[in-house]
Simulated scan of single mutants.
Amino acid sequence: MKTYGVGVFGIGWVAGEHIRAYMMNPHMNIKALASRKKTTAQAKKDELGLECAVLDDYNSLLNRDDIDIIDICSPNFLHAEEAISAAETGKHVVIEKPICMNLKELKAVRDAIVKAGVKSQVGFISRWNPHIQSLRKMIDGGGLGELFYVEVDYYHEIGPWWSGWLWGANTRKTGPTASLVAGCHAVDLMYLFGGDVEEVFAYGIFGHRKDYEYEPTYQALVKFRSGKLGKTGCSYENECPYVMNIIIHGSKGSVFNEKFFTKEWFPGQEEWQTFQSTMLDSGDVKHHPFKQMVDDLADALINDRDADANIHETYKSHEICLAIDRSIETGEIVKLPLSE
């Protein structure tokens, strides 16, 4: 049976779930954990009972011949440089979102992965949520007909309780924006359902929080290349439980979060029906389907196909985020693809 050696860098909150996912896949073998603080890597190794090396720098991970996949869970501002180095070394890459801080980095990451010919998977974990999988099947199967409106919003109170505060996730230097820190999850789903985007217009505000350097609340209106409309929003200063809001309207049906209506599939339907599946209703990484993300990567490697959240797909989601940021900054409509 084919197996792949895995090295994980940046052993924090989310890395633990990445590691557990690899441990559940028979094709994956954790060879090393590395972190800027070696003690955190050692503690995670001990906690999970792993037999692997413990390292304190990224280059040591890259230089190991027994590692085929580098999984990057470090702070946001390090992702691009580390992903490029991994690809140039011939390693397949798993990159936590965001993969960049700006358009120049985004293009550089894409180009390095394409040039090296390695596989890529980006941590847009919502793609593998059971509710989202059901929606994808419904859309692809024609249950909603031709879509004309897609809305996905990410509302999650984020503050000093999150470990990201320790490396400046709330700052422009290392965050760098609400869309790239986590609003990108909603943006990625909007793109997944709606397709390529032609233009974006967005507003950003400071609602009531004073501990962010960038606007922690925004709304963006999107025009897709197909002509349909979209909307995506995000707020980190909402005083309520986690919400991922999803509204989809098509020529033959609609979705309103956990509810759906489609006479195409259920001719006798008179009221909303409800999806009986795990919803996107928690920001806790223990709730997220990392196992399915790793399983998809393993299958992509074995069968020589692109992973679901590959660099080409996720480039487009990141580009939409950057367009949102540019529109907030300039107050203008921003057309895609972006130029410098």
Rank of each mutant, 00 (worst) to 15 (best):
Leu144Tyr: 07
Gly145Glu: 13
Gly145Pro: 12
Glu146Trp: 03
Tyr149Met: 11
Glu151Cys: 04
Val152Cys: 12
Asp153Lys: 01
Asp153Asn: 13
Asp153Ala: 01
Tyr155Cys: 00
Tyr155Ala: 06
Tyr155His: 06
Ile158Asp: 05
Ile158Tyr: 01
Gly159Arg: 11
Gly159Ala: 15
Pro160Thr: 14
Pro160Glu: 12
Trp162Ala: 11
Trp162Lys: 04
Gly164Leu: 08
Gly164Pro: 09
Trp165Pro: 02
Trp165Tyr: 14
Trp165Phe: 13
Trp167Gly: 00
Trp167Ser: 13
Gly168Glu: 10
Ala169Thr: 08
Ala169Leu: 10
Asn170Cys: 04
Asn170Arg: 01
Thr171Met: 07
Thr171His: 05
Thr174Lys: 14
Gly175Cys: 03
Thr177Trp: 08
Thr177Phe: 05
Ala178Thr: 13
Ser179Met: 15
Ser179Asn: 11
Ser179His: 13
Leu180Asn: 10
Leu180Trp: 08
Val181Ala: 03
Val181Arg: 00
Val181Tyr: 06
Val181Asp: 04
Gly183His: 09
Ala186His: 03
Val187Phe: 02
Leu189Lys: 06
Tyr191His: 12
Leu192Ala: 07
Phe193Trp: 09
Phe193Ile: 13
Gly194Glu: 09
Val197Cys: 00
Glu198Gln: 11
Glu198Arg: 11
Val200Met: 00
Val200Glu: 02
Phe201Arg: 10
Phe201Met: 06
Phe201Ala: 05
Tyr203Phe: 08
Ile205Leu: 05
Ile205Asp: 10
Ile205Ala: 07
Phe206Met: 09
Phe206Ile: 07
Gly207Ile: 00
Gly207Cys: 07
His208Gly: 14
Arg209Ala: 15
Asp211Leu: 01
Asp211His: 03
Asp211Asn: 08
Glu213Gly: 02
Glu213Leu: 02
Glu213Ser: 08
Glu213Trp: 04
Tyr214Lys: 05
Tyr214Cys: 10
Glu215Ala: 15
Glu215Asp: 07
Glu215Val: 13
Glu215Trp: 02
Pro216Lys: 00
Tyr218Arg: 12
Tyr218Leu: 10
Tyr218Ser: 09
Tyr218Val: 06
Gln219Arg: 12
Leu221Val: 13
Val222Met: 02
Arg225Gly: 13
Gly227Cys: 11
Gly227Asn: 12
Gly227Ser: 08
Gly230Trp: 11
Lys231Pro: 00
Lys231His: 12
Thr232Phe: 01
Thr232Arg: 00
Thr232Asn: 01
Gly233Val: 14
Cys234Glu: 04
Cys234Met: 08
Tyr236Glu: 02
Glu237Tyr: 00
Glu239Ile: 11
Pro241Asp: 07
Tyr242Asn: 03
Val243Asp: 06
Asn245Thr: 02
